[in-house]
């Protein structure tokens, strides 16, 4: 019964991802993407990673997607954007990427074929994750913090002139 829930979540994830990537309206696509992320969060929960599921919802679906929403709002694409998207998404342009992706998928599935294991069925508690994170992986945490700092500085630098222009200050 609960195992069936996994397959439902997987189906929802796949479907919503496919919808997200084939939309012409960015806002709609974003909603589909959030849906995909939420179903992946469900899968995390099912396979015994509740902490990851929570983070998936809070940070992925919550924080990162909100960033997208902000940007879409700032760009204010409107109806002309959709018309242009339809021009760009001609059926012909799907052929080669489709072949490549199918080939890659086929290879991955072939390689995964014959794996007989299952998940343990026992949830790994957040406490264990925290102990591991600040135990053997403390260096990785430091690196991640550096990366976030770099992302912060980079994002500020790249976005600054755009913001400055909006305030009517000439920078370059």
């Amino acid at each position: 019964m609960i195992l069936g829930l996994f397959y439902v979540a997987a189906a929802v994830a796949l479907l919503s991802t496919a919808m997200a990537l084939s939309r012409t309206n960015a806002a709609h696509a974003l909603i589909y993407l959030i849906m995909s992320l939420l179903s992946v969060a469900v899968i995390f929960f099912i396979i015994g990673a509740p902490f990851a599921a929570a983070l998936e919802i809070v940070i992925y679906a919550g924080a990162i997607m909100v960033l997208f929403v902000f940007v879409i709002m700032m760009l204010n694409l409107g109806e002309t954007g959709q018309i242009r998207e339809r021009e760009w998404l001609k059926p012909r342009s799907w052929i080669l990427p489709g072949i490549f992706a199918a080939a890659l998928l086929a290879e991955l599935l072939i390689l995964e074929n014959g794996l007989s294991g299952t998940t343990t069925g026992v949830a790994v508690e957040p406490k264990a994750v925290g102990l591991t994170l600040f135990g053997p992986y403390v260096l990785a945490v430091e690196l991640a913090s550096m990366l976030l700092l770099a992302g912060l500085v980079g994002a500020y630098h790249v976005g600054r002139s755009f913001l400055a222009r909006d305030r009517g200050v000439k920078h370059q």
Binding site: L96, P97, F100, A103, L104, E107, L108, I110, L111
Partner: peptide
């Protein structure tokens, strides 16, 4: 990106062969 995908396909093919597929 497409060329990289092609490269990954080839690489995975090599890994597959090497793994005795």
């Amino acid at each position: 990106a497409t060329v990289m995908a092609a490269g990954v396909i080839v690489l995975l093919g090599v890994v597959w062969r090497a793994a005795g597929g």
